[in-house]
């Protein structure tokens, strides 16, 4: 492809990539919380994201609610769904080999979207709330992407504050560092599991709300975010929460630049090679650090 790539195009790729990366970072932080605390890879994360998106869509379509305001509903709603999933299903496989949790969450990940399809059909729906873009110098900023980026950043920031400053947040981090020792220190790890899964699901749901402002809402919409979130976790290091955040921004950046130079399909291949390389060379993630 002999296309001349100008500096402005590069800059545009960086900006678009980072804007997308904020969302990846927030969604992956949710997955990372679940993985960090329980070593469970939640394949149903995309399904939870989809539920968040539909929450926003219906509130917008039926009551005209501001999609960003509906975060206040989608987050707690999905928190509840997450707690129930943990309580009914996932807690039984926390200490089982990974095959059990992979299959279990996969089962959930096809069950929920298919119910959604029965309930709401497979139609593509959209939340037309914020459209258009503005120019800043040579760079175009898409308004919905910029606003969702800021919201994603804000929510991730709140989550970090919670993890760093509150007692519960410290208990979560302790459990993900060493489950047994945390238990010895008097932490009720069962309860931490519930909260971690709830928070993870809540972050996925909030992610869905934000996605719905930018892209179509349909039952299978969450799928593409699952593998991306794995990638983010691997880049950042498993159980490393700031790592997950920077991994998300990095993935967005790589995608933004790769889409300039290559087709979308090949950028997937690049992402995979990156994943395997990082797993082999730096299994603790690119950011070496503490959880």
């Amino acid at each position: 492809m002999p296309i001349q790539i100008t500096g402005a195009m590069m800059l545009q790729g960086v900006v678009s990539g980072l804007l997308a990366g904020g969302l990846y970072a927030m969604v992956a932080l949710g997955l990372s919380l679940i993985f960090g605390v329980m070593r469970v890879i939640n394949i149903a994360h995309g399904a939870l994201l989809m539920l968040g998106a539909y929450t926003t869509y219906w509130l917008f379509a039926l009551y005209g609610m501001n999609p960003f305001l509906s975060l206040l509903i989608s987050f707690p709603l999905l928190f509840g769904v997450g707690v129930l999933l943990q309580r009914w299903f996932v807690h039984r496989v926390v200490n089982a080999p990974e095959l059990s949790s992979l299959l279990l969450t996969f089962g959930i990940s096809i069950f929920i979207p298919n119910l959604a399809m029965l309930a709401w059909t497979a139609d593509y729906r959209s939340v037309e709330f914020l459209t258009g873009s503005f120019l800043l110098g040579p760079i175009a900023f898409s308004k919905p992407r910029l606003v969702t980026f800021l919201f994603a950043l804000g929510i991730a920031g709140l989550a970090f504050l919670f993890l760093l400053k509150t007692k519960l947040g410290k208990a979560i981090r302790a459990t993900s560092q060493h489950r047994e020792v945390a238990q010895v220190c008097g932490i009720n790890v069962r309860r931490i599991d519930l909260i971690a899964f709830g928070l993870g699901a809540g972050l996925a749901g909030a992610g869905g709300s934000l996605v719905s402002v930018m892209f179509s809402v349909f039952p299978e919409m969450g799928q593409i975010y699952v593998f991306k979130s794995f990638l983010v976790i691997v880049l950042g290091g498993a159980g490393n929460y700031p790592g997950a955040f920077f991994g998300g921004l990095l993935l967005g950046l790589v995608e933004g630049l790769a889409s300039l130079l290559l087709t979308a399909q090949l950028s997937e291949v690049i992402a995979y090679i990156l994943l395997v390389l990082v797993l082999l060379v730096r299994p603790t993630g690119l950011l070496r650090g503490r959880a």
Binding site: F35, R39, I41, V234, Q265, L275, V276, L279, P283
Partner: peptide, 28 residues
Amino acid sequence: YPCLRLKGPYFAIAMLGLNEVVRALISY
């Protein structure tokens, strides 16, 4: 050869990705 060194969930993730990559390459 490279991926069987990965342990537990990481091998599963790598294999999941492999499938997507082969499909992407064939489409490309």
